[in-house]
């Protein structure tokens, strides 16, 4: 199953280049891109953008920046970010629940905003800053949102918890003194089935103040 595993650098695992017949699929070659766009794009992305290449459907080599570390992996273009994280990188904190951009269990933070990782292609996450639940605490200390989740018993089965923690962190990152209505708005893209919202609301409200 080597094609399903990340590899750490050149020479490990199969590398997939563009398909044969690549040149016919190249629309505009050698066109420069504006400085603004360069800033927003990763190196691999710039290369791809500059050649306007068609890639896939076979696996494509991409680089993801996750919690400050770069990961190289080969993905079919259809692979979603959640599947890349969970199936290929063993980052299983984010959960796949509705898989349709509704329940928020897959929430990660990309370039500072909470997103549904079930609804972003991994290939589209290239060149962007991805934060997952695995990256927000250290061995010694949890993030204030996580601390408050424990303090307020904001979890039962816990399957929605990582997504709610990340949505909560996104609230705290942006607003050090959210009102309860702000908290409810910021959490509205996440659904819990056991019914933990009483603790979750308090936890995020307190944590935002604490991490301010």
């Amino acid at each position: 199953m080597s094609s399903n595993k990340p590899h750490d650098g050149p020479g490990e695992g199969p590398r997939y280049g563009p398909r044969k017949g690549f040149s016919r699929r190249t629309f505009i070659e050698g066109v420069g891109i504006g400085a603004g766009a360069v800033g927003a794009l990763g190196a691999a992305d710039q290369a791809r953008a500059a050649t306007n290449e068609v890639v896939g459907p076979d696996p494509v080599s991409i680089t993801l920046s996750i919690n400050g570390k770069t990961h190289k992996l080969d993905v079919e273009p259809r692979v979603t970010l959640i599947d890349a994280l969970r199936n290929m990188l063993d980052h299983t904190g984010a959960k796949k629940v509705c898989d349709r951009a509704t329940c928020g269990a897959c929430t990660v933070i990309v370039d500072g905003s909470p997103v549904y990782s079930c609804t972003m292609l991994a290939i589209e996450a290239e060149g962007r800053r991805i934060e997952t639940i695995e990256g927000i605490s250290s061995d010694d200390a949890m993030h204030p949102v996580q601390v408050q989740f424990v303090e307020h018993d904001a979890q039962q089965c816990g399957f929605c918890t990582p997504g709610l923690v990340m949505a909560g962190k996104a609230i705290a990152d942006r607003n050090p003194r959210p009102s309860m209505a702000d908290v409810e708005s910021g959490l509205c893209g996440n659904i819990c089935r056991c019914g933990t919202y009483v603790g979750v609301r308090k936890a995020v409200y307190e944590a935002a103040r604490e991490s301010a």
């Binding site: 984010a94 424990v150 923690v165």
Partner: peptide, 23 residues
């Protein structure tokens, strides 16, 4: 406090869906 709270809040709790075994 729930004793399994920190593990769940960290996203470290391994559910069946999270098992990735070799091969």
């Amino acid at each position: 406090n729930r004793v399994d709270g920190p593990e769940k809040a960290r996203g470290d709790a391994k559910y069946s869906y999270d098992r990735n075994l070799d091969g």
